[in-house]
Design a binder for these strands. Structure first.
Lengths: 216, 216, 216, 216
DNA sequence: GATGAATGAGACTTCATTCAT
DNA sequence: CATGAATGAAGTCTCATTCAT
């Protein structure tokens, strides 16, 4: 605690030209991160690729972590936006349909960005200290709850806070694992259906459970 | 593909003295990994703390990754053993009880080794390439299936392979996430109960689901 | 075959300051090579003597071989130039005089640079892979042929290609050996005269040989 | 001067068993030298290949150079013997035939051992300090002179010592260069004939030269 | 602001050699 | 005599970061 990574930008680019420069650096970093082993992504290479002096990079970012964090933040925001957009189209569904919609949305988006997701989850050492990443879980809960009223309504479990947390973690983790590490012998669509089925069971099971086993 | 990390030991310590040395090095590495940032764990420091010449380290391990892998392997094996032992005591349970037993076992063991788990999952860059780590998921399925007959019996889902895979991923991921990243405002016991409750729902839901919606 | 030494410079020093730095490094390397056992010439020592950080060296040269190659290239070019200059002064000579002129020129230049020649021929392990060194034989043939028309005219031996190759090798090798390994009891001038005498014999012998023994 | 390589054996193996051991080490070293880059031939590898503890190696050889020197010495002696044997068969020849015989003999032997010759001449850094190597030139003169009376008779040049030295150097150097570095476009047999032709010219030219230009 | 030359601590790794067993 | 575990100095090379221009 307290010795986290220094991630803040040093200076906000005020002039128009400077903004372009910073954008070039971030883009270059993103491209390199997506195509080279993490340790090969050096600040010098980023600057070179951006067509910028290494000194300029350090004028806007205090260190290597900062620019990587900036890239990751962009990625996360974009992905969240994509998921949101995709779910916005399918409001007001039945529980099972809602679950499938959400699973499909996440599945599809994560799959499309699997390289980036892998980087964030398994490669970049300080990823969890990046705010956008750290806040992702809550973000997702929010999205789910906001978009699907039917889901929200079901979330009156005993221990409701824990329930929504666990539900989201289970969804997220199983989808990510399926995308990144799914055993080859399994059909992806099968997995997708299974996940959404299970989520539905959790939510639907609630009815029965809540009434049938009140003495739990 | 194919260019994995070279992890095999260079030479097997045949003499008693050598075994002691190797043990010292592995222990030192484990301690350092648990207490320093990963990049600060250098081979020189490992050797120094082991009270051994750096040359000795490289006589038994071809590189830094190899000794780290050895440490991690030891950790994983110990944890698997602990979980197994803990579950062995509670065979032949009802579904709900079986689920809770397993969740509790994993929860407790992972919690006790949370630093190591975090290292393996979030810090050590090549962790997934270590055999013991790569095989962990299947290991866990095996443990669960072997110990709890009642669980095994329930696993006749439609899409059974996908189901057992997803079930295990959900369990594992939610427990790990809960241990490592559980929001502070949540009570750990609540989360634990919720997880096992959800798992039970998935399995019990099967009965209803399987009969009520055959045309899925 | 194919896996030659990487010898190209990493970055061309564009600024004036950088050129000075590179020059200092090359000079330092040259001095060390001339005064220490080859294995004692380390990149660190080169940088230290050049009054430069080791990092600077690796900014311009990809590895140790590259800077050594650069030094050797400089030496070879200088020597070739010296020989050329010396021979340019003595064109249009009789065969015997031409031979002596060339032998003397090579003898003198090689003798003056004997330490460097020894390094190139007997010490630096990858010397033959340095372009300037590899091309030296042809260079010398060229010099000889271009400067001395009388020599060129004589080169119509049977098997002319083999002849010019062997003639050059004999000249070069005997001169170098004489400079580097001449037994102490021999007078250097005697050796020099003998070599040029022999070369003349080879060329003059041609006349007789070609006419007197056509049935060879 | 004075700081030459320590090459002498530490201890002469007195027992029969020890002699076998030493032989194994030398053989192993020879094989490794012939098949690996020089820097990869380490004392540990030699011992391992010989099936001997590294300690044993250092009981008979004071250092790495010593065992390499021993290997090289064996090679040189064998080659000299081969050349001698081959020339012994062809005594009492005419000048031209004697020259061709000698050139052919050297050519053939050197070619058969080209890898070793290359090692001795271009790779092993301290080769010239090995007695057997240092004495090679004189050895060869001796061989030539002893075996071919006709050659010896011709060696009454002005400056006879220089002459015999230069003649031998030219022969040796041109043959070695031809074997090791002969341009691909040249026919080896052509080169061989040319060399012996040139040598004959040198020796035959003597007659004329000695009488025709007494005022040299 | 922008540049890029310069830095240098420090990482990994090798290998000839010693010496306790 | 033989062993092989242990040594550690020293080498090559990287890369985040600074600062004079």
């Amino acid at each position: 605690m307290g010795r986290g990574i220094d991630i803040a930008m040093k200076k906000r680019p005020s002039q128009r030209r400077a903004q372009v420069t910073v954008e070039a650096m971030v883009t270059a970093a993103a491209e390199l991160l997506s195509s080279l082993p993490y340790d090969s992504v050096t600040t010098n290479r980023i600057a070179e690729r951006a067509g910028v002096g290494i000194g300029s990079l350090y004028q806007y970012f205090p260190n290597k972590e900062a620019i990587v964090a900036r890239v990751v933040t962009g990625w996360v925001e974009a992905m969240v936006e994509e998921v949101t957009a995709r779910l916005a189209a399918s409001t007001q569904l039945e529980v099972r349909e809602a679950a499938l919609a959400m699973v499909s949305a996440l599945f599809e988006v994560i799959d499309r960005h699997r390289v980036k997701v892998k980087l964030i989850l398994e490669v970049i050492p300080f990823a969890t200290q990046i705010p956008a990443v750290a806040m992702l879980p809550q973000q997702l809960v929010l999205i789910a709850a906001q978009t699907h009223a039917s889901v929200r309504d079901r979330l009156n479990f005993p221990r409701p806070e824990a329930a929504s947390y666990v539900l989201m973690v289970m969804s997220r983790a199983s989808i990510i694992d399926a995308v990144l590490h799914c055993p080859k012998h399994l059909d992806r669509r099968d997995v997708e259906l299974t996940i959404s089925d299970f989520i539905a069971r959790i939510m639907l099971g609630n009815e029965t459970a809540a009434t049938a086993r009140p003495q739990n």
